[in-house]
Amino acid sequence: MKRLKKIIIICGHYGSGKTNFAVNLAVDLRKQGYPVTLTDMDIVNPYFRSSDHSEMLDSKGIKVIAPVYANTNLDAPAIPAEMYSAFDRSGYSLFDMGGDDAGATVMGQFFRNITGKEYDMLYVINGKRAMIENVHDAAEMLYSIESASRLKATYIVNNTHLKDYTDAKTILESMEYAEKVSEAVNLPILCTTYPVSMIKEQEISATGGIITQHLYPVEVFVKTPWEVN
C-alpha cells in the first residue's frame, strides 16, 4: 500500500466502516514499529466507536484519545484538551471522524491545527451501504464532508462489505463501484479491504475477475455483543 502522510484523517458515511478500518490501520502501523495515536473524533454516534477498542489498542501500545464522555451514559460532545495536541504527536496520528458531514463538522474547529501540515484524508466507502450505494450519492457525500471539515480527501478506501453475507464476489464486484466513485470525485483508490477471517485473498482471485486494486486484509473489530469469536 502507498505510504501515507503522518496525519491520517478517516472520513465517510455513517456505517461505511471507518472505525473498523481506522483500528486496523492503527494496528498495522504500530506493527511496523511507528508510534501511533488514534483519536476518536466521533461525537455524533453514541455506539460503535474506535474508543470502544481502547483496551486492545492500549495493549498494543497505541495511544487512544477519545471525547470526554465517550462510552459513558452522557450524550455531550465534549472535546478533550488532548485532541488539540494530537496533530503534533510523533509518529502516525490517525483521526477517526464521525459519520457524514455531521461528524465532519467537528473537524472544522481543528482547521488551524492542520493548516500548513501535510495530511492524508481517506474517504471510506461501502458499495453495500444504503444511501451511498450509488456513485452519485457517494460523491455528494464526500463533497459535503469536505465542505464541513474544510479539508480535502486524498484517497478512497473501498471498504465494501455486507457483514456476514460478504463473500469473494462481493469484494470483487465492489471494485467497479470503487472505480466509478474514484472517477467521479477524481481521487485515487488506496485499497480495497476484505475481511480476512471470512475470505482468503486467493478466493477473490479465484472468482475469475480482474483485481485492479490493492487488497488490504482487515480484521473485524467492530462487533455486536452477541458476535462471539
Binding site: Y14, G15, N126, K128, R129, A130, M131, L162, K163, Y165
Partner: peptide
C-alpha cells in the same frame, strides 16, 4: 438486493 443499514435508518425507510 441486500444493503447495509442502521436499525434506525431501516425503520425510517420501511
Amino acid at each position: 438486493a441486500k444493503v447495509l443499514m442502521k436499525g434506525n435508518e431501516a425503520l425510517a425507510e420501511a
